[in-house]
Write a protein that binds this DNA or RNA. Structure first.
Lengths: 123, 123
DNA sequence: CATAATCTACGATATTTATCGTACGACAAA
DNA sequence: TTTGTCGTACGATAAATATCGTAGATTATG
């Protein structure tokens, strides 16, 4: 599977969040991030469909698109690349960065502690 | 500062790791990842120098290049984008993914626990 | 010195990605 | 039925990236 470009990833993210949607809906969400004209969004989504990144239902006048791939399918590759280039190959560095730079609730911290406990047991 | 492309990021990562190096050295490291001809690497590094991503010492016949920006300067933007697109906007998801998908030593887990303790105190 | 090896410079082109305009069909409202 | 709105299709082009070849200078080697 060919990996999505930056602009395509933005559209995928919107569809992952909203679920099946029309071009109009995606376009409006996209425009909150950056300005593009409608036909650009349309064209991009058509290309993405050809690439197999999206699927669409054309039974109505207004086509409904949905993501054909899941975020899960990209996470590993992307995180690997980020870790290897920006964090000196150390996932630990990335984790420390993410925790240090984002407000994390007590509940979330608890979840991490739990995972750590589990990992320690496995050793 | 204009953000580096994917190919440029590979070269930056090499220079961050090796420190100041000749084009030849970078090229050889790069070829372990993907095949390119020497002049492609050279040209890319020349362009990167114009963009301000690299600096070079031309006092010798063989020019020596070094990174003009630090990984730190890109981490936040890149991680934000990854979190927002691939991890539903939740840094926690990224952290869990990184921990779950990579072997992490006991020492590293300790470091994370320590950071968590500190974060909890700050609340 | 002659020849080969190593480098830089740089233009040309290929490839990929992104953007936009025009045409035209469907449909609803005046 | 005429007009306006909303939608798709799709070609054209722009812009950004990546790749490569050739020329010529410098340095090392026989």
């Amino acid at each position: 599977m060919k990996k999505p470009t930056d602009a395509e990833l933005d559209i995928l993210a919107i569809l992952w969040q909203l679920g099946p949607s029309s071009v109009r809906t995606v376009h409006e969400a996209l425009n909150e991030q950056r300005e593009v004209v409608y036909t650009t969004t349309l064209k991009t989504m058509q290309v993405m469909t050809e690439k197999g990144l999206l699927r669409r239902d054309t039974s109505q006048k207004t086509h409904i698109y949905e993501a054909a791939i899941q975020a899960k399918m990209l996470q590993e590759d992307v995180v690997d690349k980020v870790v290897n280039t920006l964090f000196a190959g150390s996932p630990l560095n990335l984790v420390m960065h993410a925790l240090g730079n984002n407000p994390t609730s007590r509940q979330d911290l608890d979840k991490i502690k739990e995972l750590i406990k589990k990992l320690e047991k496995e050793k």
